[in-house]
Design a protein around this nucleic acid. Structure first.
Lengths: 330, 330
DNA sequence: CTGTTAGCGCCTTCAG
DNA sequence: CTGAAGGCGCTAACAG
């Protein structure tokens, strides 16, 4: 591949001069400048950014690490972040943890090896250890969606507890009295908060909190929602509504119910968090709390770019507003 | 950030020795090896892969460039590709063209600057120029989904003409006689092929090809589908079915029809290509040709990795099978 | 087993 | 306006 040396040789100048025209420095005679530019084009020269990063200590690259890009919630976070990064001349590297903390750890490591300028992370790990390498290497980062307990770091998300309260309360207003919770984790911040909101709503309305109606799995994926629902229905009587802590879980719940010949919403209602791509899906099904995913992405990226460029290190908490959308599942 | 020099100094050895234990080379005394490994851990040393890439000429990074990650078709391509890359110790960089050829060009350029080992591209450009920089710099790449005319390069996709024929033929079998086409481009390979399939199907059944029923826009997005449909209904009578060339167009078609108080499928049927995330969406709506997106991604990555590692440069054409799924829109 | 020496491609003083 | 020299962090012969 053609290097700065090749150009210099062909132009009969030093590499310094070539470097100068590449980087638009002043003080290059128009004549030599033109000659070099012509050569640059002819040879199809493309600078090696790894080499310049070595010197500049900047890669203009930001890593975004999310659980699963095929979940439109995360895809929209990504789009928001990417858009903003691009407008500031940053490239985005993506990593899919697939809700696996081992992969998450590995991704963080490779991204540090690549010396990314910053990281946006929606963690599956709940242990502070996961962000240690980032801190140790002075790499700015911001957490998104899920937070990590004890990490006094910038975070962008919504008020999960409050929103869970809101949607469960909506069910209660609809006359539901036996409301089950299908959730994904006792550890992940957002699921802990959603459970708290659920319990608060029940208590405030004087409804019993029944353990048989609370099933917590390990990952927010369809299979987990499916299995937990089946398990619940084996051991206890039918609730009149289910609060699924995210969209994928809700699909699992729905499928399990369907297998057992229950109708939604006639026999039982379902509500959840997050959406499948709002606006593209023809008739959205789930009554749910819709998070402003794309905005979360841009907000997180804004915060991160501030840290990178301004060097400011305050840790901010940004809470964005979400919406309750009533649909066909209730 | 701690470097190999820091470790060497602290251990009282040369950087070569440190490099050796980092890269697991033989011939290092157990004792010094242990000492260095301890230091590595203590200091939280992370190698700078940009520096090693400079000498090794390999970045272990592959760029994937797609139109829009929020379209589940592309998200699944991505997942397939990423999965495979990871298993071979490659990292994936992602670029979203947003169906904009300028952005596409820029992305290709930044990825060359980063000296990625290979590229997977689902192009919006139809001009051979777009892949010239890749060829000029000897960067292996494979095209996915859309092909570029005249590019004798490896490509992974489906038989678009045949599949379009199949789905239009299905409509004809259902007794439809006035079948419209809403498509996105006269240039992009897949849309050209789908149009051919549509026309062949009509002709073979002795149906007229009416230009009033063929509307071609510029991009496969909702807005285009919406506007084209409205325009068509202004200038001609209602068809009894619409073939939308992809899923996003279909949504636009549906929304336009709804605005005009037509019912789908009672008044008019819709069919399309691609799906919204199969299996997650509760009740898929569109009768459509479902492409094996994830498989396309892994197949493309396989091809690419072969080129990179084996250095083989044959250009292969891989056609995968797709399915016709009958749903509620017909 | 271990260290010295040369780069990889580029940028940045510091002298002309 | 231009060039020489040194260095970014790491690897790879080549000598010990």
């Amino acid at each position: 591949m053609v290097t700065i040396y090749d150009i210099a040789r062909k132009a009969g100048v030093s590499i310094t001069t070539v470097s100068r025209v590449i980087n638009n420095h002043p003080y290059v005679k128009d004549e030599t400048k033109e000659k070099i530019e012509k050569l640059l084009k002819e040879t199809g020269y493309v600078p090696n950014s790894n080499a310049s990063s070595l010197v500049s200590k900047k890669t203009n690259t930001i890593a975004v690490i999310l659980p699963d890009i095929t979940n439109s919630f995360f895809a929209n976070i990504f789009r928001g972040a990417e858009e903003r990064a691009n407008s500031q001349n940053f490239t985005v590297i993506y990593g899919n943890t697939n809700e696996d903390s081992e992969r998450e750890k590995q991704y963080i490591n490779t991204f540090i090896e690549k010396r990314v300028d910053g990281v946006i992370l929606d963690p599956i790990s709940t242990d502070l250890d996961i962000i240690k390498p980032l801190e140790q290497n002075d790499i700015p980062f911001v957490l998104i969606d899920r937070n990590i307990k004890g990490a006094k770091k910038s975070h962008v998300g919504i008020h999960n507890k409050k929103e869970a309260f809101r949607i469960v309360n909506y069910l209660i207003e609809q006359g539901k009295k036996k409301i089950a919770l299908i959730s994904a984790s006792e550890e992940l911040s957002v699921y802990k908060d959603r459970k708290k909101g659920y319990i608060n709503a029940l208590k405030e309305s004087g409804l019993d909190v029944e353990n048989d109606y609370i099933k917590i799995g390990t990952k927010p994926i369809k299979e987990v929602g499916y299995n937990l629902t089946k398990k619940m229905l084996q051991s206890s009587k039918l609730p009149d509504a289910v609060f699924a802590a995210n969209n994928f879980l809700a699909v699992g719940v729905y499928n399990a119910l369907k297998d057992l010949d229950y109708r939604v919403p006639e026999d039982i209602s379902i509500v959840c968090f997050d959406d499948f791509d709002t606006g593209t899906v023809i008739s959205p099904f789930f009554t749910s709390i819709i998070q402003p995913a794309s905005k979360m992405g841009t907000a997180a990226m804004d915060l991160l770019l501030d840290k990178i460029e301004g060097g400011d290190n305050k840790s901010e908490q940004i809470y964005l507003k979400s919406e309750l959308c009533i649909r066909k599942s209730t």
